[in-house]
């Protein structure tokens, strides 16, 4: 199945988010090898260049590291993964609150709903 991506936001960012959450959720365990860029691109049905760029970004953040010949691996740095998890959680909460605000629901009311 192609990944469910919005076409009005940069695909690149969405892929990064998606891979981040895949790593955080444990779909790709620490130290596990990531599929090749081409494979990922085919799976997601996105442009290989974009996928390449996204993987590069993950590498820059430090969530994955590449070994010259054997490919890309998920970091074994659990701290970093935890940190990313928290960041993603914060972002989601923020988005949730924003949406609630749009609906005219205050923070307390939202908490009650939860």
């Amino acid at each position: 199945m192609p990944w469910n991506l919005d076409s009005d936001r940069p695909i690149f960012l969405q892929i990064v988010e998606r891979l981040e959450s895949d790593i955080v959720s444990g779909k790709y365990a620490p130290g596990e090898k990531l599929p090749a860029v081409r494979e990922l691109a085919v799976e997601a049905a996105v442009n290989p260049n974009t996928m390449q760029k996204a993987c590069g970004e993950l590498e820059r953040i430090g969530l994955v590291y590449s070994q010259r010949t054997s490919g890309r691996f998920v970091t074994e740095d659990k701290k970093l993964i935890d940190q990313t998890r928290k960041e993603l959680a914060k972002k989601t909460v923020k988005e949730f609150l924003q949406r609630m605000e749009e609906l005219g629901i205050s923070r307390d009311e939202a908490l009650k709903l939860l």
Binding site: S7, R9, I11, F12
Partner: peptide, 15 residues
């Protein structure tokens, strides 16, 4: 560039 369209205008290519 398609990504530029999305970045700059926040719109999809079909839009």
């Amino acid at each position: 560039s398609v990504e530029k369209v999305r970045e700059e205008s926040g719109r999809s290519l079909s839009e």
